[in-house]
């Protein structure tokens, strides 16, 4: 197991090195901070999504779910739309970036937590209901924002579109710092929960019998999940941004890979391994696509494709058991 972690670490190191140095044009004094910020953003986003997905799979006792099917990116677009709708494009552009970040983070975490807690309080741990409600809510929010988008003046609408793309072509160091301030403590808390998560993963009855009633752990994990996804989306934007935003399937791929590379039920193993794999997929993937193959296809598209196939495989394999 230790050897596998060393290998994962080496691959991640190589990917990062490749990402920083390959295809360098222009002066290093510009490139290093520019690419360094993007590298850090990729690592942070990857780690947040890997952690959130692992926690989500543990508390739902399901290995083919990721929190992003709950329509977090639709919430992000909704916030954006409502802001442009109420403030106008110029008013929106005048908003300071940190305010936007916290607004996004706040809305996404608050709504996510509210939804989860309401559902947890209702049906006794009926996670399927929770997930279905999340999906339906995501569709509803998407419909509402596209309704609002139609009422926005066309010229303002194009600035809305630009806003949802442009913010991610380069990484604002201030946002990166804010996101790190939120995500790193959340990941640390998840790490502190690792032994309790092992117990929770056994199931409700076994966990209760061992003195670890699942409700509290589930709630804590859900809060962490919402904050992590919220912070990652607020930093990198949703999937549709075309950058490295939390793709629907990224979490699924990296956690499934982590389970393959370091097979264990222990979160002390799975958590770091999923984070490493996530960094490799995002940074290695970005390096190979951009710097080696010179493809213009955005990485999330490839991730969606591979992830979609993996999802089908997991689904079919699961249904055969």
């Amino acid at each position: 197991m230790a050897r596998r972690f060393v290998i994962l670490g080496l691959i991640l190191g190589l990917s990062a090195l490749g990402y920083m140095t390959l295809g360098a044009v222009g002066s290093w004094s510009f490139l290093i901070p520019f690419r360094g910020a993007k590298l850090a953003a990729l690592l942070l986003t990857g780690a947040s999504i890997a952690t959130a997905t692992l926690l989500f799979q543990t508390i739902t006792a399901n290995r083919i779910l990721t929190p992003s099917i709950m329509g977090f990116d639709s919430l992000y677009m909704a916030v954006l739309t409502v802001l442009v709708f109420t403030l106008g494009a110029s008013g929106y552009a005048a908003l300071p970036a940190p305010l936007l970040f916290f607004l996004n983070l706040g809305v996404m975490s608050a709504l996510g937590i509210l939804l989860f807690l309401a559902l947890l309080a209702g049906g006794r741990g009926d996670m399927l209901k929770l997930v279905l409600t999340g999906i339906v809510l995501g569709i509803l929010i998407r419909a509402l924002s596209s309704f609002l988008q139609r009422m926005i003046d066309p010229s303002e609408f194009s600035s809305l579109q630009a806003a949802s793309f442009a913010r991610f072509t380069h990484v604002d160091p201030l946002l990166l710092g804010l996101s790190a301030l939120v995500s790193i403590p959340a990941i640390a808390l998840a790490w502190r929960m690792r032994h309790r998560l092992d117990v929770l993963s056994l199931g409700t009855e076994a966990a209760t019998g061992l003195g670890e009633p699942p409700r509290r752990g589930q709630k804590q994990a859900l809060v962490l999940i919402c904050v992590l996804i919220g912070s990652a989306t607020a930093l990198a934007g949703p999937m549709s941004s075309g950058f490295s935003g939390p793709s629907n399937f990224l979490g699924l791929i990296v956690v499934a890979l982590a389970r393959m590379v370091t097979p264990s039920f222990r979160h002390a193993v799975l958590l770091p391994s999923a984070i490493l794999v996530s960094g490799i997929v995002l940074i290695g993937g970005q390096t190979v696509m951009e710097r080696v193959l010179h493809l213009s296809t955005p990485l999330p598209v490839v991730i969606e494709l591979v992830g979609g196939l993996l999802f089908l495989v997991l689904l079919l394999r699961g249904s055969r058991q």
Binding site: R194, E205, A206, F265
Partner: peptide, 26 residues
């Protein structure tokens, strides 16, 4: 319990070791 349902995929030895959790807390 009667159902004995265990969600995680783990080995027999690991399961028995989890039985000690109240004492060792992981």
């Amino acid at each position: 319990p009667q159902s004995g349902h265990v969600s995680a995929r783990l080995r027999v030895g690991e399961l028995v070791e989890m039985g000690r959790y109240p004492w060792h807390q992981g």
